[in-house]
Structures are given as C-alpha cells and as structure tokens.
Design a protein around this nucleic acid. Structure first.
Lengths: 161, 161
DNA sequence: CTTATTGCAAACGTTTTGCACGTTT
DNA sequence: AAACGTGCAAAACGTTTGCAATAAG
C-alpha cells in the first residue's frame, strides 16, 4: 500500500452528533468509551478519505502519541465501527482494506491504478439493476461492491505509465 | 476458505486451441513451456469453476502427483495467466482470490455469503453505465469489478444462518 | 469491584522470494 | 551452453488472538 489517497467528500454530520451516536452505540452494547476509541473516530472525522488500518495507526501515533495506541486496537475499533455501520471499507484484495467514515450516503468507487486516488459516485440505475439481478437469481441481497479501475486525468497528463 | 464452489459456465474454446494460444504467448515472451505450466492450464480447463491457488494445488497434487508441483509454481503460473488475460480472478479480501479460466465473455459475480457458491451474470446496461461514469470523471477505464453478495435460494431453504 | 479494553508479541493464512538445482530451448 | 523454471523453506504481508496489565462503569 504505497499509493496516495486524497480525494473524498466531507462527512455530513457534526462531530458532536457523531460522537453522541457512537457513545449510545457503546452504551447499548455494554461496551466502554475509551480514549483510544474516541481518537480513532475523531481522526477519521478530521481526515476525510480512505485509510488502511496501518495509515490510520501512523496518523494517530503522530497526532496523539501520548495514547500509545496499538495497531491491534485500530483493527478492533475499525471492525466495531464497520459492524455498527459507522465506517465502511473498500477491499483491495491481498493488499488489504481501506476504511472511511460511512455516515455518507451509499456510493461506489472509481480508483486510479496509478496514484491510488479514490473518487466516489452513485448511480441509481446501477443500484436498481443489481437488486433486480439478485432477485432474478433468487438471492436475498446483502451487499454489493462496484469498483471501476483506470487512469485518472492527472496521471494521464503526467504520462506516468 | 472453507466454502464450496460449484457453479460455473463452460469454456468456449477447445483445449487444443487454448494450448496453442498459451504456447504462443510463452514463445513470444521467451518463456518456457513446462509440464507444470501445462498441467495447471489443463486442470483449469477440465474443472470449470473458481479455485483458490490452494484448491488448485491440491487438485493437481491428486491428479498429477508425479510432477510434484509446488504451490509456488501454482501462484507463479496463475499470475502469468492472469497477466496474459487467460484467467481472471475474484478477490475475497484476506481470504484470498479465486481464479477461473477467462476465455469466456466478460461477466460479473453474485456470491452466496453462506455457502460460497459463485454464479455469473452479464448486464449490458451496467457495463455501458460504467464506461459512461469513467468517461465523466475523465478516467481511462482499465477494469471494473462488480460483486453482489447475498444468500442463495438453497441456503435460504436450509435456513442455515 | 466487576467487566471490558488495552498493548504486546506471538500466531495466523495467504502470497512472495532467494537460492541451488533441473529443464527447456 | 545459456536462460529460464522449479521446489523448497524462509520471509513477508495484513490481520487476529491470547494474555497479563489497565481503565471504565
């Protein structure tokens, strides 16, 4: 994972609201509100974009070194947040996953295979079609993932491979 | 990777043709035609479906034990075949990839999250839409991947999870 | 004071690699 | 003979886990 990722849209709700939502989630599951969990959520909020667990870990290490947050906690918290629907992930196969705050509307991704930039889009017609296809096969649809890979305009200009 | 995979369509060309194609590919890249490479191709041909490298390795070990093919060779050959466009893969995140002979027409996948069954479909409208979206963003589209996850009819009946 | 959470390091499963030996051309 | 491919074992990679120590409720 040496690629950059810069582009993303901004979250729609205030941090205060998000934090309240998170605390309620924890309370209703008999989980505890810890400094580590908060800093992970806060870091995701203040850095819109898509991050690997490792990237997030490095960011937190730099910005809140006093917490000494371990990478295992980053993984554990990201799982927690994903199960709760607060973050979503894109999978890059063997190269791991990238996470983003998922309080935005559902969307798919278009990814530059040269610089790793991730853009987001939503297409109602495609969404509907997928539901129709699942139904056709008799599946109860749980999830779907659509990724378009290509070379972004900037990389085309730079002529980098 | 404990799930089964059974469903797949059949390849469209004869093994002879495929083999010739493969040999030409090798020759034009100064690569060598080895028994191991042939048996891997042949196994993929005679077992339509989606396989992990490990599954393929086990299959070859059983069917052609005299070759003593190592799993590293399976990985290396699958990469070679994928780069050449002869096989394609679906990624399952940390759980690895599954490969299939890619001499069929392009298609997407619908995957049962309970039993791991993989079905294939093709939707012209979705394909076109994706091209349009890539163009909109100024991308040169290289590839795309669409996966629908859900519970297949059989698993719904069995009420498993 | 009970229970959940943490950091650490070890374990995990998949994939890649270095290397001496073998095979293909 | 030269170059490429092989099997093996070790390493690498992202991720998960067991555990004793710590912090939250």
């Amino acid at each position: 994972m040496k690629q950059e990722n810069k582009v993303a849209t901004k979250p729609l709700i205030s941090y205060e609201t998000l934090l309240t939502q998170f605390k309620q989630l924890l309370r209703s599951n008999n989980l505890k509100f810890t400094k580590q969990r908060e800093v992970i959520l806060h870091t995701l909020y203040t850095h819109p974009g898509h991050f690997t667990p490792e990237e997030l870990y490095q960011l937190i290490k730099k910005e809140s070194p006093e917490l000494n947050t371990g990478i295992a906690t980053v993984y554990r918290t990201l799982s927690l947040l994903e199960n709760a629907g607060i973050v979503t992930s894109i999978s890059f196969g063997t190269q791991g996953k990238k996470y983003e705050l998922g309080i935005k509307a559902h969307h798919d991704h278009i990814i530059c295979t040269n610089c790793g930039k991730i853009l987001e889009f939503f297409d109602e017609a495609i969404e509907k079609k997928q539901e129709r296809i699942a139904k056709e096969f008799g599946f109860i649809m749980e999830d779907h993932s659509l990724k378009i890979f290509g070379i972004c305009p900037e990389c085309q200009k730079e002529g980098k491979s």
